[in-house]
Each structure stands twice: as C-alpha cells, then as structure tokens.
Computed example of a mutant assay.
Amino acid sequence: MAYEFITTEQVGNVLKVTMNRPEVYNAVHGPMHDEMSDCWDKFASSEDQWVAVLTGAGDKAFTAGNDLKWTAQGGAQATTTKGFAGLSSRFDLEKPIIAAVNGFAMGGGFETALSCDIIIASDQATFALPEVKVGFFAAASGVQRLSRYIGRLAAQEIMYTGRKVDTAEALALGMVNQVVPHAELMDAAMAKAQEIASVSPSSVKATKRVLNALNVTEGMKASNEYSREVIADLMKTEDFKEGVSAFVEKRKPNWVNK
C-alpha cells in the first residue's frame, strides 16, 4: 500500500512514522486512519522493525486530532477497526511506539500519543482533550488512558473542561515521560528508540504482551468498546450536530442539552 498521508522511514531496527497533512495540522481523516492502520499492521509483522517513533510533519502540530471539516462534509470514513490513527483500539501490538510530540496534540491527537508507550514532548507542545467543546467526548481511549496514567481526579478536571495543558504541567502530572528543547526532539526520541532496540526484542515483546493482558483483565478494552456505543448515542443528539456546525462555522455553539 502506497501512503499519501503518512511517511515512513526505517533507521536500523527503528521505524519512523510521520503524520503528513501539515496543511490541516496533521488532522486525521478516514483515508489517513486506514493508512496508519496498515502501517501498524506491517510494523507488527516485520522481523526487522522493533520500535517505532511517531511524530507529525511541521513545527506546529503533532496532530490536531479528528478532521471535523472532513466529517462535516461527509468525507469517507475509516474502515479500520483498530481505532483512532489505527492505534487506540489495538490491544495486541507487542512492539513499543514512542510519540515524539512536536507541537499541539489535541483531542484524538492526544489520544494517539496516549496510545503509544512513551511520550517525549517538545517544549513547544500543548495537550488537550477538548472534545466537550464541540459536542464530542474523548471516546478514542482518552477517558480510560488519561485517568489511568495521571489519576482520575486530575483527569476528570482536564476532560470536563477541555482546557489546554502545557508541558510543565504535563510533566508534573505524569502525562509525558520527558520534555526536551524543540530542536532536540527527534534526536531524543530516536535515542530512546535505539536504547530500546539495543535490548532483547523478544523480552520487550514479552513485557508488552503482559501489559496488553492487563488492558483486558482490568477492563480497558471493554471500556473502550463501550465508549464506541456511547459516542454512537451522542452523535444522535442536537448538541453533537451543533458542536460540529459551530466548529466549521467558527462560532460559539448554542447548546440545548438534548
């Protein structure tokens, strides 16, 4: 499969994947979801790719998340069943992925980073789950992962308000592993990937296999599937339609609570 919306490069045993729609801040639409899902399928089956680094094209955005304009225009939806960016519902991948967050990671963009194993952020990065501002909620595992990683109390305030979190707060809360100067981001991410690639790949896969099992036994997988049911109900509401319309029209939404 030739990719149009992502680029890939292999460096030793490390696969570098770049979300490549900088003109829309690397927002993910249906075709891009499917390309990324195919990329992760191939990564999973490759004997020569042991670790991946995921980043976004340009200096402004890791990814803005869901391409709401594409959705509002009735664009083709993803066919993958593996979740946002082909990743958020993928609970059987046994190889680690490092998110190199080079700018803002919003909504599904932050959920994509949370679906990775390690998050290294540029000091210019910002994070948010702002779905509640446009009639959605963080249904691509954001509710589950953020509350698990930083604790429910802190996560609830961030998700209920949809506010932005800078790198200092993100590091203090444990939302990211490391913050580095912007110019050093990819070097830091690739160095961490090479560090992982220097140990036994079989041992790393065994470790992640157990972690994946925890996602099942502790209910994250089931909860993620339940999120899809809830979002389907939410999409039938007037507030959902209003949120998308207001975003596209660049105006304040008029919520009606139904």
Results as ranks from 00 to 15, higher is better:
190 M>R: 03
40 W>V: 00
30 G>Y: 10
175 M>E: 03
86 G>R: 08
9 E>W: 02
10 Q>T: 04
105 A>D: 01
226 Y>N: 14
53 V>E: 00
136 F>R: 11
246 A>P: 07
96 P>W: 05
45 S>G: 10
134 V>A: 12
172 A>R: 14
250 K>M: 13
243 G>C: 04
251 R>F: 06
70 W>M: 05
188 A>Q: 10
131 E>K: 03
193 A>K: 00
14 V>W: 00
100 A>T: 04
51 V>K: 00
3 Y>I: 02
180 V>H: 06
75 G>V: 13
150 I>F: 08
47 E>R: 10
206 A>Y: 09
9 E>F: 04
165 V>Y: 03
10 Q>S: 13
13 N>T: 05
168 A>H: 12
148 R>G: 04
162 G>N: 04
217 T>S: 14
56 G>L: 01
55 T>P: 04
22 P>R: 01
59 D>M: 02
149 Y>R: 14
220 M>G: 05
113 A>H: 07
178 Q>C: 13
220 M>C: 08
251 R>W: 09
89 S>H: 12
78 A>D: 03
223 S>D: 15
235 M>C: 12
57 A>V: 07
60 K>Q: 15
124 Q>N: 13
220 M>S: 08
82 K>G: 02
128 A>N: 11
43 F>P: 01
64 A>K: 07
114 L>M: 15
71 T>P: 05
160 Y>I: 15
32 M>Y: 04
29 H>L: 10
170 A>K: 08
10 Q>R: 15
79 T>P: 08
202 S>W: 07
54 L>M: 04
190 M>C: 05
118 I>V: 15
128 A>F: 09
17 V>H: 01
